[in-house]
Design a protein around this nucleic acid. Sequence first.
RNA 1: GCGCCGAUGGUCUAGCGGCUAUGACUGGGGCCUUCCAAGCCCUAAACCCGGGUUCGAAUCCCGGUUGGCGCACCA
Length: 582
Amino acid sequence: MDKYEQVIEMAKRRGFLWNSFELYGGTAGFYDYGPLGSTLKRRIEQIWRETYVVQEGYMEIEAPTVGIEEVFIASGHVGGFSDPLCECKNCGEAFRADHLVDKIVAVADTLSDKELDKVIRENNVRCPECEGELGETYEFNLMFKTQIGPGSGRQGYMRPETAQGMFVDFLRLARFYRDKLPFGATQIGKSYRNEISPRQGVIRLREFTQAEAEIFIDPNDKKHTNFSRFADTLVNLYSDEAQDRGIVDKMSLAEAVEKGIIAHEFLAYQIGLTNHFLQRVGIVADKLRFRQHKKDEMAHYAIDCWDAEIETDRFGWVEVVGIADRTDYDLKAHAAVSKTELSIYREYSEPKMVTQFVVKPNMGKLGPLFKGKAKDIAEALKAMSVEELEKDNIKVTVDGEELIVPKEIVEFAEETVKISGENIIPHVIEPSYGIDRIFYSTMEHAFEEEMVAGKDDTEEEEARIVMRLKKEVAPVQVAVLPLLTREELITPAKNVEIQIKQKGLLVSYDDSGTIGRRYRRNDEIGTPYSITIDYDTLEDNTVTIRDRDSMKQVRAPIEGIADLLYEMIYIGRDFESAGKAL
RNA sequence: GCGCCGAUGGUCUAGCGGCUAUGACUGGGGCCUUCCAAGCCCUAAACCCGGGUUCGAAUCCCGGUUGGCGCACCA
C-alpha cells in the first residue's frame, strides 16, 4: 500500500474525502469533501485570504461560475480550449483526429478541422477499430456548456478558470482602487473542465477549486516595494536552464533576479509569497520547488512563468500553483472583443511639454460643403503631412472617392501642448492556485505512521497513525475527553467543552472507549491538543493538555484554558509554557 | 478515448458453479477501567449495475459504471 492509498483510505474512513454520487455508482472527476475535509479545506482557503486579501490588499470578488460566450471568445477558451475529435460512422467510436493523421502529416496538431478532414479523405484513413468510414472532424471543447434561460436562450459556459471574472471587472476594479497601480483582485471558487479522462483522485477533477489573484502592474515598473521581505529567502529553483542540467538550485530570490533567472522583482516577490503560503499550510520545504516553464511550453504572450510543484509519493512532482507574467494580453483581448478601452490613466510625476503637429479643420465650413462625408474628411486631414496640407488644393481620398478641400478651411500648426499623463494597459501578474491539489498534498505530507511503545512498557511496539497537520489548519482543534465514562467526570468535561466553544475553537467531545483509543482517533485526524478531565480535576480544577506530536502532557488550570489553547493554535505559544509538565 | 488488471459490511479481506457469504479492524449499547488502539457480553453492517448461460451465479460470459496502471490528453 503506497502513501496515496493510505491517505485516501483514511480520508474516506474519517470523513475527509468521498467519491461523489457513490450511492448511484459514482462519476469520475468529482469528489465530496466530508465534514473534516471541508473544514480543512476552508482553513487552507482562510490562510490564503489572510495572505492575499488581508496582507497584500488584493480584495476578493465573487463573479458567477456561469459565463456568457463573449467572455470565453475573448479569453480564447471557445476557440482554443478544445481537442479535434472524429467519430466513426459505423461503430460510433470517437478518435482524436490529429492523432489519426500524425503518421501522415508531421504538423497534425496545427491543422484546422477542415484540413484534418482533407488529409483523412485524401489518404483514405479509416476507423482503427472497424475500418468504417470516418465522419467530419469537430472540436470537443473542454468547457461544460449550458443554456442561459429557456428555449433558444443564449449559450453559456461553466467557467474553466476564475481569472476572467477579474479581467471583465477591470474598469470597476480600477475605479475602486482609485486608478492607482499596482492593484489586484482575488477570487476563490469553483471552476469546471470537462476532462476527457480524469484520474489521480483529487489531483485532476472536473469541478475544482481555484484561488487566483490578478495583479495589475505598471508595465514600465516591475519592481516590488516590499521585495526586501523575501530578498534573502532561499527557494528551490528549477529554471529552464537548470532543467537541462537536471539539478535544482537553492538560491535567494534577490540572486535569482540579479542573475536574470526570474524575469523581475514583482514575479520573484510572488514566488516568495507562494513559498511562504505553502509552507504555512504544511507543505514540507524539501518537497517544494519552483519550476520555470521552458520557452516552448510557455504561452506566447507570457514573459515568464513559474509553477510551484510539490513532490508526492505516487504522482511525483505535481503542479499546484502557476505564477505568470501574462503581460497585457488578457486586457487587450477583452478590449478588442468588447470594443472598450481597458487602460488606466497614469499621471506623470511632472507634466511633459510636447511639441506636436496639429491639424484643425474648420468644421463650420467643412460641414455645409461636404455634408455627411465631413467627419471622414476631417479624420483624413488630421493624418496628413505638412507638405500635403500646404498645397492650394488638398486632395483627400474618402471611401475610394477623391475630393478636393480648399486650403483656407484647414488650419495647421506646430503646437506645444502640456501632457500630464498617458493611458497605459497594465501588465498582469497571475498567481493561480489549485486548492484541491494543495489540500491533498497537505494531508500526504502530514500523514505519518510511526512505531510507539505499547501499554505497560512491554517490549511490544505498535503502529500509530498521526497526521501532523499544522495547528492552524487542523479541522478539529481540541478534543475534550473525560478519563472515564463516569458522571462526575462527564459534567466538568462538558463545561470545559462549552468554554472552548465560546472561544470559537472547533472542539470534539468524546467519551466512547478507553482513553488510549480516543487519543489515537484524534491523532489520526490531526487534532493538535487533547484535554483530559481526571480525578485531580475535581480536587484542584486543573486538566491535562496532551500534545499530538510528542504525546507529552502538561497540567493547567481550567480557568483560562480556552485562551491558552487559542494562543497555542494561532499565536504559536509553546506547548511547554502551557502548564506543569507531567 | 484505447489497452491491461480489479470491484464482497464503514475499512481491509476469504471465496474459484451448491451460500444460510469468512474473518479482522472499526462503529453502537453495556460491564469493567485513574492516561495512550487492554478484556468480556450484546449489536449493526456487504456480493457495483444490467443482461445472458445454468436446475442453481459472489463465482462463468457480454455490456455498462467505477478504481488502478500504461498510452494518449491536460497544467
